[in-house]
Simulated assay, not measured.
Amino acid sequence: MTGLSLNLPEDLSNSFADLDKTNGQTASYLAMDVLRDYIEHEKTLTAQIELAVKEANEGKFATDDQVASMRARCWSRNAG
C-alpha cells in the first residue's frame, strides 16, 4: 500500500473524526471507502458518457415521443 497525505479543511477533518468515533472506523479507512466509491462512480459515469457519444455519432437518438414519455415518467415521480 502506498501513502497519501492530504491537508483537509478543519470542518472536513472534524467530520472524519466524528464518524471515526461513531462507527469505529479509522479516518483513513473512511477516506479510502469514500475514494473507492467516488472512483467507481466516475468510471461508471465516464463509460455512460462514452457510450452516449458513440451512439450519437452513429445517429442513434431518442424520438420526440420517447423523450416526452421519459419526461412524463420522471415528472410524475417527482410531483408528489
Rank of each mutant, 00 (worst) to 15 (best):
A52C: 14
D33L: 15
F16M: 05
A17E: 09
T63N: 03
L19K: 06
L30E: 05
A56P: 07
D64C: 07
A79P: 13
M1E: 07
L8G: 12
L8A: 10
E10Q: 13
A31R: 08
H41W: 00
C74R: 09
A56F: 00
E10W: 09
T2A: 00
K60F: 07
L30F: 04
Y29A: 15
L35V: 12
A31Y: 11
D37V: 13
L4E: 06
L30Q: 10
R73A: 06
D64E: 08
L12D: 09
R73E: 06
A68S: 13
G59L: 05
S13L: 15
T44F: 01
H41E: 09
S28Y: 07
N78R: 08
A62I: 14
D65Y: 01
V53S: 06
N78F: 06
R77N: 08
L35M: 05
I49E: 01
D11V: 11
E42A: 05
T63H: 01
K54W: 06
S69W: 05
A27Q: 15
M32K: 13
M1P: 04
E40L: 04
M1Y: 05
L30H: 00
L19G: 13
E58W: 09
A52R: 14
D65A: 08
R36V: 14
S28Q: 10
A31L: 13
T63E: 03
D65T: 04
Y29S: 15
D33Y: 14
A72T: 10
A47G: 02
M1T: 07
M70F: 02
N78T: 10
L12C: 06
A27P: 15
T26A: 04
E42S: 04
N78E: 11
D11A: 13
A47L: 02
I49Y: 01
R77V: 08
S69Y: 07
D33W: 12
R71C: 12
W75C: 10
K21A: 11
T2C: 00
W75Q: 11
R77T: 11
E10N: 12
E10M: 14
S28P: 09
Q48W: 04
M70W: 00
Y29V: 14
A27N: 11
L30M: 04
R73C: 04
Q48R: 07
G24C: 00
K54A: 15
D33N: 13
A68T: 14
L4K: 02
N23I: 15
S76H: 03
I49K: 02
N78D: 12
G80E: 06
S28R: 11
R36A: 15
A56R: 12
G59E: 10
A72L: 06
A27I: 10
A79H: 13
N23Y: 07
I39C: 05
L12A: 10
F16S: 01
A72M: 07
K54M: 11
N23W: 11
E55S: 07
A56W: 11
Q66G: 03
P9K: 08
S15A: 13
